[in-house]
Every structure is written in C-alpha cells, then in structure tokens.
Design a protein around this nucleic acid. Sequence first.
DNA 1: CGTTTTTGACCAGCGC
DNA 2: GCGCTGGTCAAAAACG
Length: 299
Amino acid sequence: MSSSEKNNPRHNYDPFQGFSRPTFPFFDDTNPCIYSQSAAAATQAFDPSYMSFTDCLNGGSVVDYNSFSRAFDMSCSSSDVVSPMDDAKKIGLSAENSVGDNNNHNPNLNISENPSTPNSSVSCSSNEDGDSSKVKKEKQPADDKSKKVKKEKRQKEPRFAFLTKSEIDNLEDGYRWRKYGQKAVKNSPYPRSYYRCTSPKCGVKKRVERSFQDPSVVMTTYEGKHNHHIPTTLRGHASPSGFPHEFLSRFLPPSSNNIPAGNTSSMHYQTPQQQQQLQVPDYGLLQDLVSSFSRNQAP
DNA sequence: CGTTTTTGACCAGCGC
DNA sequence: GCGCTGGTCAAAAACG
C-alpha cells in the first residue's frame, strides 16, 4: 500500500460509522444481491432467488461487516483498484452479453469474472473540479477537431451497483437525480437511463437498467461520491436516525472535500415523480426497515 | 415560469 | 481507418 492509499479516505471507509453497526444481510456468499467491482463479489454466482434490495435491508440471515465491506470493495485503495466496471457484462443484464468476450448467456444472471483492467493508471484527485465524469464536451467546429489536443483519458469514478427486484426503475435513495440521457440497450427491450445528482458541484451519476432476462431485476449503478449530504428528508419528515437514507448514502465513499451538512436545506426533495415512487411497495419495506431500525436503536 | 424529461445528435473509446 | 457502442449534450417538450 502506498502512502497515498493510506491517506485516501476511501481506504478506511466505514459505511457504518456513526451507526450502531447493524447486521444486515446485504451480502453473503450465497446471496450476493449486491455486487461491486470486487473480484470476490463479482465471481459469486448470482442466485435468481436473491432478495430484493429492500428485502436485503429488511432481514434474513446475518452477514458480518467484513462481507459487506468486501462486497462493496470498501477497502479498495484507489480507483485503479476499482477497475472500470462493465457491470452489465458481469450479470448479463444488457445486450453487451452478446458482444466481445461474452460468456454471459447465463439465464441465471451469473456474475462472470471481472476482467482485469489494462492501463488503469488512475489518479485519485481530490480536486473539487477533478470530477472526471464531468469532462465537459465542448462542441467544436469540425475543422477544429484536428487541432484539438488529445484529451486525457477519461478517469473512472468508483462504482458499485445494486441488483434489485423492483417494479420501479429509479429506486429511491434520498438524493435528487436528474435524468440526462437514455439509451436503448442492444438486444434488450429495456433502455438504460442515465441520471446525475442535481446538487451543484456534485458529479455523482447513476445508471439504471432492467434485465431483459428477468424484467423484475433492476440494476442501479452509482458512480462517484456525493460531496454533500442528502438534500432533505422524505415527505418533509426527519429521517429516523438518519437511516436508511444516510446509511445508503454512506455506501459511497466519502469525498475528501465533504461539505458540512446544512447547506442543502433549501433543496426540495420531492418531485412528483419521486412522490409517485414513494408509493410503491418497495418503499414501504424500506419504511418498515426504518421502523425496525428505530426500534432497535431505542434504549 | 422554473424544473425535469425526452430524444436525436454528437463524441470518444475500442476492436477488427 | 472504419464501424460499433456507450455515454453525454442540449434543444424542445412536458409538467406542475
């Protein structure tokens, strides 16, 4: 481990920091309902009888923190360890299965081996403007193209993904997202949607796509780190114990330039679309979890 | 009227 | 070099 890795806040990141460490069955060796770029996690066979995201939250077998941490590759030291994830390839969610070195024709959504990443010489810039995902594309006249200095290779933000059994595509996670694109997925009737966090200077993105093999499965891929706290609470109420939204937000490693809470208070959390989503059963499960969590937190 | 979504076009990266 | 594909932009439309 290099000294820079030691200094990387992500390296010792503890998503449970500040909480009584719960024993959520987010991940166990037979039920990787969540996967990350972690090779260990990625190579786990995906059981089609997995729990939904909220089911995972809601109970079941106990998993220790280390497995959870492994699952999210929380101990990854830098973004070059977190290899650029071709997530869809891993789980056969999109038509990318059918191209290249595909061996993902597994109807059971097996997670295939994570290919090694060549030339992933990625620096861990903590620069506020270092959000590589925001490499602004400036449209230039065609005759300028030849003059254009070759851009730096696009850096990859740390990513992780949830596999969720859900009716809705855009799972509620407490943040506000703006959709900025949608692409048809090859060989899949379901498009992939691209969302960006609406908070200023927050470059976190997420992609949402539905498995064409099992339409009840949604994969949500997060990319980047929120540099702010969750805007406000759902339905204008305080989230009990800051959970699960804050908890969920901690899945993403902290930014080295975290800004203090409070300056997002003016954000409006709910959009009509979000409001609609809150009425789905899955969110009810989440709320059950919140209640359960609150009870467990009570003295 | 401000915000969000839709959608076609554009661009970069990659494999052949 | 070319074609394919994923990702992003940005204008228009939709929405409340």
